[in-house]
Every structure is written in C-alpha cells, then in structure tokens.
Design a binder for these strands. Structure first.
Lengths: 110, 110
DNA sequence: TTGCTTCATTGCAATATTACGATGAATATG
DNA sequence: CATATTCATCGTAATATTGCAATGAAGCAA
C-alpha cells in the first residue's frame, strides 16, 4: 500500500530509517556536501551548483530543514542555509551506532 | 516525475544515496539488526521476528541481497541469510566518510 | 509605485515504494 | 506418489517521491 508500518518497529529503528531516507536522494547528499565544503552559509547559489530547477531544490531543502539537519536565515531577498552542527552530531551518533554493529561480531557462518 | 536525475550527480553521491535508501525503511533496519544480533545465519524465522507478511519480508531481503549487504544460502527447504561482512565494511567506509564531513569544519556562521 | 530578484508554495504528471493474496518451485516427509 | 513446508515471484492496490511550470510573497532599487 505504499505505507510503511512504522508502528511495529522500535523508535530507534524508525528514527534510523527517517534519517537514512533523507540521504536516499543524491540531490540532498550533494546539497549537504556543498554546505560542508563551503564551510559557511550558502546564500542563493544552490540552484546553479546543483543542476535541478529552483522549486525542486527548494523542496529538498525543506526536507533537510524539517529533519533539523540545516537551518535557513532570511537575509533580504535571499535565504542563507547552513548545517545545524548540533543536530548533525546527534544524527551521526545514531547512524554510527547502526553502522558499527559489526564490530561486536565474533563468528563467521557463511 | 518520480525519477531521480542521477546523471547530474557524482558516482560517489549516487552510491551514498543508494545505500542510504536501503536503510530508509525500518523493516530493513530491523532485519539487519536481527542478523547482527543473532551473530550467525538466520534460517526461516525472520517472518515471525519482524511483523510483516512473508512476501513483504522476501521483497526486503531481495533488496538487501541486491546491494550485497546480505547473502542467502539454500539449505533444504529453508534459506539461511547472513551479513556479507566484506560488503558491509565497504558500505560503512563510504557512509562514514559522508557522516564525518563535519570534523573538518572550522568556522561557525549562523 | 513599478519592476526586479529570490525563494516558497501549489498543482500536476510520471515513476517508485510498500504491502499482501495468490500462486509457483523446490525439497523434505510419510 | 501425495502432502506439507519454505521461500520466491506475480499481480495489484494504495501511497510516496520526484521534478517542474505557474504562481505567490517579500524585499530591494529606481
């Protein structure tokens, strides 16, 4: 039905999947990488940087902002976006725990 | 149009998003966590463990297998699944690089 | 005020994802 | 052989995602 049955999973599992899903599109990966690379706010030139139409970029930014990974500040007619370092760290902690599950593994079977 | 424009992004960005997307569903997160927790092959009881119908589980397993994160071995009428540690490590390296972008950041702006 | 720039929102079309019943393939058991 | 078990695949319905043209809102400049 196109609808995930989130109620049968743990909060942690749902949280991991929500963050992972936002990284599940190359445009959002590219936006975040650009924000980190510039190492400061990005004011306006994201549409030229990524090769998608302005409404599309705006929509991706909205999703990133909704999860708290970036924050936008209005500056005249422009909006400046940058990474929310605090929330990025929290998300990173959650995903690192998931990705590092394999360190506890002892046996090999297959 | 529901179709990602992968051609305008780098191979690395597309790869990151492909792996992230597979973690973008709590059922697949739960399956992987269970495989790690059991620390050996899982033969058959995944449908009982996760609360979804058998065809649905089968479909999620197929996606995980397609990306190489798990491997399945036929054992009689059962199929035993386990983590592909080698590919998991490669995937982890790719995502860690992405998640750890923030360590290089010096300035704060917003 | 008029026009320009920048970004958000709306509306829509195309495609993808999720979930499951029904069915099929393969093996084991009696 | 007949039956049961286990898992994959097919088909389908419901919902989500992606992308963009059109439009709206807000500030700036002349």
């Amino acid at each position: 039905m196109g609808l995930s049955k989130t109620e049968i999973f743990t909060d942690q599992q749902n949280e991991i999947s929500v963050f992972a899903k936002v990284f599940g599109h190359p445009a959002r990966v590219a936006i975040l990488q650009h924000l980190f690379k510039i190492d400061t706010c990005v004011c306006g030139d994201l549409v030229n940087e990524i090769g998608l139409a302005q409404p599309t970029i705006s929509q991706h930014l909205k999703e990133l902002k909704h999860l708290g990974l970036i924050k936008g500040t209005i500056e005249g007619t422009r909006v400046c976006y940058c990474i929310d370092h605090n929330n990025w760290s929290k998300m990173k902690q959650l995903l690192l725990e998931f990705l590092n599950q394999d360190v506890a593994i002892s046996t090999e079977c297959c």
